[in-house]
Design a binder for these strands. Structure first.
Lengths: 160, 160
DNA sequence: CTAATTATCTTAGATGCTAAGGAGAATGCG
DNA sequence: CGCATTCTCCTTAGCATCTAAGATAATTAG
């Protein structure tokens, strides 16, 4: 199968493109959060909560994932409960722990706001061959792993 | 030229991968900003300032780009000047305007902190064929355009 | 049982945002 | 020109949300 010809690009150009995309998506996240009546921290946390739906996060795990103190997470959870996106659930095995479960409607409410982006993105992917989509997905996975490890290193480096 | 075989993936899987990458890069930006002695807003603004080095932004343009009020930008510029990353420059043609120019060393100081990420990312790209890098760069560009237009639409939609 | 540890919440203080308005500079119109 | 309007940035007051430190309650180790 022959895909359309894509313009050649250097790694440097590709990285610059990635940079712009990430910078822009940051602004985008802010706007989406606003539409959901949340701030960007709360939206990020809600993302983690939805992502771990099958094994609910504890408040502390959420703090770690989001790079927040547990005190800040207390505020996040209060707001998310208030807005009906998630709620605290007692951990049966350890009563100090708080499990955070998403409201059943949360995923849907969030998706609805992301829809304009996702619909168009799906359209964009449709313009690439399955092999090309494979390359993209592969790259995302590896870039994520790489970023995660670089991040841990940078955190250790600064003594955090 | 035959690249390594990449696992096939659906557009949905690719989007999920992209989501994770974006979420993580948000945390990463936060950490990088901290290492530069800045907050994430200031770093974002500094990015815009560096990106427009050939035609310096005005304070108002920066506010628009970053999605901030002009009052907030005053604070951003104070902090960036204080930290030596940028300075205000009088606009000869319109004395109401403030042009924001990056300090000559700013780009280098920022790059130094990004280096662990960039070095590894460059290594990652080296593992892809030029055609594959072309696909990635192409996708980044198009995804960025698409996100920009979706964003404008979402902003109009919410009456902003 | 007691001491130490762990997980979350509370509080105080700092930071950085918005909204509203002010000051100075540019522009337009009689 | 003269004066009102508009524009650009800054200032202020008030608010939201973060961190750091410590309190509280539950668990674990000795």
């Amino acid at each position: 199968m022959e895909g359309k010809p894509r313009p050649r690009a250097s790694a440097r150009e590709a990285m610059a493109g990635m940079d712009r995309l990430i910078a822009l998506s940051l602004v985008g996240q802010h706007d989406i959060a606003q539409r959901l009546g949340l701030n960007i921290t709360d939206l990020t946390c809600l993302g983690h909560i939805l992502g771990a739906a099958d094994d609910p996060l504890t408040a502390g795990e959420l703090a770690e994932l989001a790079g927040l103190t547990t005190g800040a997470v207390t505020g996040v959870l209060n707001r998310l409960e208030q807005a009906g996106y998630a709620r605290r659930q007692a951990d049966p095995g350890d009563r100090r722990r708080v499990r955070v479960v998403a409201d059943p409607t949360a995923a849907e409410r969030v998706s609805a706001v992301y829809e304009p982006f996702y619909g168009r993105l799906a359209g964009l992917f449709a313009d690439y061959t399955p092999d090309e989509v494979g390359v993209l997905a592969d790259w995302f996975t590896r870039a994520t792993d790489l970023m995660r490890s670089s991040l841990e290193e940078i955190r250790r480096g600064s003594g955090r």
